[in-house]
Amino acid sequence: MLSVNNLTKIYPSGGRQLTVLDHVSFVVEPGATCAIVGPSGSGKTTLLGLCAGLDRATSGSVVLNGIALDNLGEDERADVRNRHVGFVFQSFNLLSTLTALENVMVPMELRRQNGIRKRAMALLDMVGLTNRHSHYPSQLSGGEQQRVSLARAFANEPQILFADEPTGNLDNETGTTIEQMLFSLNAQQGTTLVLVTHNLELAAQCGRVLHMKGGALVADQIAPPQNPAA
């Protein structure tokens, strides 16, 4: 599903070269759940961004669902994201001027699909927010916003889901609910999950944990998931 080979990212910063990722390589199989952990500044988010096609690497390659991202232009990578990738963000990142339903509809509208509204309502139903479909993000709690974000992430039936600290801005109880929902939906949809987190308990629920430090992959731990949602 996801193949990362010798991935390196260097940024110019204050006249010097800053190596944020240093020759990282790994492969994630379809349907697998994978957590990326590490201290702040270890390159987790940068790795996530490169894997999702949000950025270009300095060297190395990323092949996502058989598509090499390195040679694609911005708009082509946007198209890949729309068709194959779902996102869940730490700050929910809902469009504040759209209702919950409209937020879920956006990825499908970009793809010009039919029957968008019905599917979006079904997704909101899956996350238990049918009655809140006409509410704006400012009218929803943090947990509810993240649930809408989850529904949106699955709107285009992605093959792979990237989640960046999905429970980072939530309290423990709400965070647990979201985690359960995330893994449950993931299992239902058969999506590959790549998760960036500080939370080792959350990471332990994944089948594989990649440890990052100083931009390098320092450990690759295969483990059976604890408390699987399925």
């Binding site: 999702a52 949000l54 911005e74 708009d75 946007a78 198209d79 994201r81 729309n82 068709r83 996102f87 990142n93 469009l95 504040s96 956006v106 990825p107 970009l110 793809r111 949106r152 285009n156």
Partner: peptide
Amino acid sequence: VEMVALLRCLGASGRT
């Protein structure tokens, strides 16, 4: 900017 960045994550082009 954040909204446009998000739309780009979801698959919209810069021109969009």
